[in-house]
Computed example of a mutant assay.
Amino acid sequence: MPVPDPRLRSAMNLVLLACVPGLLVLFWLHGWGVLVNLLLCGAAALATEALLLRWRRLPVAVALGDGSAWVSAVLLTAALPAQAPWWLPVVAASVAIGLGKQAYGGVGRNSFNPAMVGYAFVLLSFPLQMHHWPGHTPGLLDSLHLSFAASEQIDAWASPTVLDVLRHNRSLTVDELFSSHTAFGHVGGRGGEWVNLAFLLGGLLLLQRKVFSWHAPVGLLGGLLLFSLLAWNGAGSDSNGSPLLHLFSGSTMLAAFFIATEPVSGCKRPLGRLLFGCGAGLLIYLIRTWGSFADGTAFAILLMNLAAPALDRLAQARERVRA
């Protein structure tokens, strides 16, 4: 009987372990809705993969046992609003596995990051539900009611993120926002700072265990830092935000260590990975500052997925010249 590739399964297990600190902080901040989303995303991802594998007459147990579907589910859980209606994580995970992964032939063949395909789909299709976050941490019963209620009730719980506030601010200085607005913490978004630190910790674990190389994370963080520094226009009311704010707000560390490092849809050569990360960092900053979405991680990664083959050819040509 075929068994999952032990190296792939080991790598996926390490990624899942590295996500635990970030998920725990999200649970601490947003409550039981995070767990509800995780269970819904996981169930939808596994069910979609099993159905499509059976339809393609491929061994179901092998693919489900490699852990890749769970990784996509966890990444979606970290990105989706904690009190989303139940069908939103189900749609996101189903699209991630169906269109982002199995449509290309399964694990190891996807041209785009599956989790970002699912996230971008629901972001474009259901913008109202995707931009609502709870203003406080509801209990278990309230979380279940918000997720499974027949009528839409999330409006009353909505709370803008630090990137939303910064994009629409025209009257207060950055210092005034930090001192008066509940979305702001010490250097970035309130709570988002701890989420980013937790995913940074998990990412460093993966680096130490050599699950991926340093090139893509350093490229993304370095690119975001450089471009936010060059475009930083101070702390006035028209400020785009400091480099430190951009590093510790939104999904920066999740993008750097868990999304940009996806080996199949990214670059294969070290220089290509570095350029991939740098380009993603630039696009994230451009979309955050002047685009239509507060955090452009999904679109930045998907655009760089398109550029990955060209970046690898460029890296290969560079290696030949140096040789």
Results as ranks from 00 to 15, higher is better:
N240K: 09
E262V: 08
L282G: 06
N305A: 12
S249E: 08
F276E: 08
D312A: 05
L226Q: 10
K210M: 07
G266S: 11
G291Y: 12
L282N: 02
P243K: 05
P309V: 03
L311K: 01
L221S: 09
L207C: 12
A298T: 12
A298G: 09
T297W: 06
R209V: 00
W290N: 12
L302V: 07
F276T: 09
F248T: 13
A300L: 07
G281P: 07
L229Q: 06
A307E: 11
N233P: 04
L221V: 11
G234P: 04
G219Y: 10
L302N: 05
A298N: 08
L225Y: 04
G234R: 05
Q208A: 14
N240W: 14
R313T: 09
L314C: 08
D312C: 10
L207H: 12
L204H: 00
P263T: 00
E319M: 13
P217I: 09
G291F: 13
M253A: 11
F212E: 03
G277M: 06
L204Q: 02
R320S: 14
P217Y: 03
R288N: 02
L205A: 08
N233G: 06
F227A: 07
P270Q: 04
P270C: 06
G272S: 08
W232V: 15
L204V: 10
T289N: 07
A294R: 02
M304H: 15
L221A: 02
L206N: 00
Y285F: 15
W214H: 10
T252H: 07
T252G: 01
A317Y: 13
S228T: 08
Y285M: 09
V264S: 05
W214T: 09
K268M: 13
F276N: 06
